Amino acid sequence: MKNSKLRKLSKNPYVLIGGIIMGLVLAMIILGIFWMPYEPTKMSASEKLQGISLRHIMGTDNMGRDVFSRVMYGSRVTLMIAIGTIIIGAGVGTIIGAITGYYGGMIDEVTMRVIDALFAFPSILLALVIVSVFGVGWTQLVISLGIAFVPSFARIVRGEVLRCKNMDYIENARLQGVSDLRMIFLHILPNIKGVLASSILIGFNNAVLAEAGLSYLGVGSQPPYASLGRMLSDAQQYMFTRPSYVLCPGIVIVLMVLGFAFLGEGIKRWE
């Protein structure tokens, strides 16, 4: 049964398309760990804003840095920030949602009112408020986005726990004297893994966009280091004179978002 479900998942067109897209992006990121054409922070006054050529396959930026090398490096930074964001957001949000959904009562009421209040703010705006407290930089951005993503995961997990906690297999486990923690983490959460996996992939999608938006505003990766959002910010004034400078990081952002979106939709349909 499990193998048949995995085969069905592997043949899902959404999963196939998403896997191919993300495979290409990950291949570039992994290649960039071991090899880059140029040092991504190396500047050359004589090679500013060059077009696409055999020497620089994506051209150079306004500081004479190789755009392809910076895209390789920036993609890694953007993905790592997204991973850190999801670890915090999904980890904390899942625990909060599971506990509030399972116990209910006053714990649920108070926690969900706080979650509702946080939901009143768009995630990027909430992250900007948190960044203003912690300061700018990669670590601060991961913490800020992670906190901003907690409410959405908490609500999703809470809803699934509320749906599952009165099912027959949970009642049977309760009659056998299974502890609450074992009930939550060994009986309920494994049975909502499909919804949680789909939510995590969609969360990656949103985290990439959020990182790009905040770095574009200057509160993420700081010069001379690159992220995809930071590259878009640096390139905006050269949109018409050197379009490859803008298009290359923009296309990678679009590919990441599409890849995670297709994978998330595929898992949702699989379930």
Score class of each variant (00 low, 15 high):
Met72Asp: 03
Tyr73Phe: 15
Gly74Tyr: 03
Gly74Ser: 06
Ser75Thr: 13
Leu79Pro: 00
Met80Thr: 09
Ile81Cys: 01
Ala82Tyr: 01
Gly84Arg: 07
Ile87Thr: 08
Gly89Val: 02
Gly93Ala: 08
Gly93His: 03
Ile95Tyr: 14
Ile99His: 06
Tyr102Thr: 02
Tyr102Cys: 06
Tyr103Arg: 12
Tyr103Gln: 10
Gly104Ser: 12
Gly104Arg: 04
Gly105Met: 06
Met106Ser: 08
Ile107Trp: 11
Asp108Leu: 08
Glu109Arg: 13
Glu109Leu: 11
Met112Trp: 12
Met112Leu: 14
Arg113Ala: 13
Ile115Ala: 13
Asp116Thr: 11
Asp116Ala: 10
Asp116Ser: 09
Ala117Tyr: 12
Ser123Arg: 03
Ile124Cys: 05
Ala127Cys: 10
Val129Lys: 05
Ile130Phe: 08
Ile130Lys: 08
Val131Ala: 12
Ser132Val: 05
Ser132Ile: 08
Val133Met: 11
Val133Ala: 13
Gly137Met: 04
Gly137Leu: 06
Thr139Ala: 11
Gln140Ser: 15
Ile143His: 03
Ser144Arg: 01
Leu145Asn: 01
Gly146Asp: 07
Pro151Arg: 04
Pro151Asn: 10
Pro151Ser: 10
Phe153Cys: 00
Leu162Pro: 01
Glu171Ser: 14
Asn172Asp: 14
Ala173Lys: 03
Gln176Arg: 15
Gly177Arg: 09
Val178Asp: 04
Ser179Asp: 14
Leu181Thr: 13
Arg182Cys: 12
Arg182Lys: 15
Ile184Lys: 00
His187Val: 08
His187Thr: 11
Ile188His: 01
Leu189Cys: 10
Leu189Ser: 09
Pro190Arg: 14
Pro190Ser: 13
Lys193Ile: 11
Val195Ala: 00
Leu196Trp: 03
Ala197Glu: 12
Ser198Cys: 06
Ile200Gln: 03
Leu201Met: 15
